[in-house]
Simulated scan of single mutants.
Amino acid sequence: MASPVTIRPVVSKRDRRTFVDLPFRLYRDDPNWVPPLKGEALGLITPEKNGWYSHAKAQLFLAERSGQVVGRISAHIDTLAQEMPVERGFGPGSGQWGLMEAEDEEVFRTLVASAEEWLRSQGVTRAIGPISQSIWEEPGLLIEGFDHPPTVMMGHAKPAYRGWIEAAGYQPVKQLMTYELDITQEFPPIVQRIIKSGEKNSRIVVREVDKTRFDEEAAIILSILNDAWSDNWGFVPLTPPEIKDVGVKLKPIVFNDLIRIAELDGRPVAFMITLPDLNEPLAGLNGSLLPFGWAKMLLWLRRPKARTMRVPLMGVVKELQSSRIASQLAFMMIEYIRRAAVTHYGATRGEIGWILDDNQGMRSIAETIQSRVNKVYQVYEKTL
């Protein structure tokens, strides 16, 4: 007879390190899991180091059996998410769980029951998960695309998790998709014609960002993002502490020619952010920059050579989203970055997303440039 599973809250620095260490054991035989840097993973669950906690609270749990840690989960409440309209994903009474890993289904059931109990004690009536932890970090459970590693800032999971979650009474509420494409090939003739037409339009300027004016450029992009994404499912505005965190995290992998801002009549109206896939150099470091990882990473950051480029964010201001010019600006930015990625970084593959399953505009753009869905992430909900 198997020993019982016990659950205890994370209360110390040592507990947090144990929380971070668990996936390294559970995924050690999975060639498609990319070990995160342990220091960064610790920062995400440490309130003093993560600006998300300025408007959220969380309780982490560890599961143990026979003295060994066999699972983990986070239950959390985002006060800004609770202020959002219900039809946009969260809303009053909503809470989330995430960062879930479990050795088997019994462990999972015990973990999720503990998360639900904590959420109920905080007045939550609807649990949504997995959200790990912010919508801007790693939302959703991987349900398709287990045969290749995720790109930077995307999650991985065990195929069994889907069945366990659904058996626990959770219903799918939203899918998030990523699209991949061969960026060594030129886009179809219709896309090239749209791009050339835009280049003849004197009202349009598509420029590179200037990293020496990082804060100013970031403010422009954030303004467009908050407008462009404000009606999207799951949208929660980034706060100043989070913006600071994102800046620190992303600045080392920001390159001028991979991020574009489109201007119409001199006004910024669209942007596209592309990042070299940091998971490629991280894959061999086993979660640590010591003893020689620092040197390898610094050399890579000086001029990264990456097979894959990921587009985590694109946006066009709402007033233009139903116009033809919106897709024209998108195609122009995608093409200019494609050329730079291939020429300057040796990239051969692009990944766009995540994209919400009901975002027909972005899905149409992805399909028009002949990309295909390569990963699907699912978010679930349950009434408590």
Score class of each variant (00 low, 15 high):
93 G>I: 10
74 S>G: 14
79 T>L: 06
87 E>A: 06
93 G>C: 09
77 I>Q: 09
101 E>W: 04
98 G>W: 10
80 L>D: 13
85 P>G: 07
82 Q>E: 12
102 A>T: 06
82 Q>N: 14
100 M>K: 00
76 H>D: 11
101 E>R: 10
80 L>W: 09
90 F>C: 06
93 G>R: 04
72 R>N: 01
78 D>T: 11
88 R>Q: 15
85 P>S: 08
99 L>P: 04
79 T>K: 07
73 I>A: 12
73 I>S: 01
82 Q>Y: 12
93 G>Y: 11
79 T>H: 08
83 E>R: 13
89 G>P: 02
100 M>A: 12
101 E>M: 03
82 Q>C: 10
78 D>C: 09
102 A>Q: 00
72 R>W: 00
81 A>V: 06
91 G>K: 05
81 A>T: 04
95 G>K: 01
79 T>Q: 02
87 E>Y: 07
93 G>N: 03
73 I>T: 10
101 E>D: 14
97 W>L: 05
78 D>M: 12
97 W>N: 04
74 S>T: 03
72 R>H: 01
97 W>Y: 14
92 P>I: 10
85 P>Y: 04
92 P>A: 06
81 A>E: 03
97 W>K: 02
98 G>K: 13
91 G>C: 04
73 I>N: 04
100 M>N: 01
87 E>D: 09
89 G>S: 06
94 S>I: 08
102 A>G: 01
85 P>D: 08
90 F>A: 11
80 L>I: 10
93 G>V: 07
88 R>W: 11
89 G>W: 10
85 P>V: 07
81 A>L: 01
75 A>I: 09
94 S>H: 13
79 T>N: 03
80 L>E: 07
78 D>P: 09
91 G>T: 10
99 L>A: 07
81 A>P: 02
83 E>H: 02
99 L>R: 13
82 Q>W: 08
97 W>S: 07
78 D>A: 09
91 G>D: 02
93 G>M: 12
75 A>F: 13
74 S>C: 15
101 E>P: 05
77 I>P: 00
91 G>I: 07
82 Q>H: 13
81 A>I: 07
85 P>R: 03
84 M>F: 00
83 E>I: 00
88 R>T: 02
78 D>K: 05
81 A>K: 02
89 G>D: 04
95 G>Y: 00
85 P>F: 03
75 A>Q: 11
83 E>W: 00
102 A>F: 05
72 R>A: 06
79 T>A: 10
75 A>N: 08
96 Q>P: 01
75 A>S: 14
77 I>W: 02
76 H>M: 14
72 R>C: 02
91 G>Q: 00
87 E>I: 01
79 T>F: 08
90 F>K: 05
92 P>N: 06
91 G>N: 05
86 V>I: 14
88 R>N: 14
94 S>V: 15
99 L>E: 04
89 G>I: 04
90 F>Q: 03
89 G>R: 03
73 I>V: 15
80 L>H: 07
90 F>G: 08
82 Q>R: 15
97 W>T: 04
88 R>L: 14
81 A>Q: 06
83 E>P: 02
77 I>R: 12
75 A>Y: 09
96 Q>N: 11
74 S>V: 13
102 A>W: 04
78 D>I: 09
75 A>R: 08
102 A>H: 06
86 V>D: 13
100 M>C: 15
83 E>Q: 15
83 E>A: 13
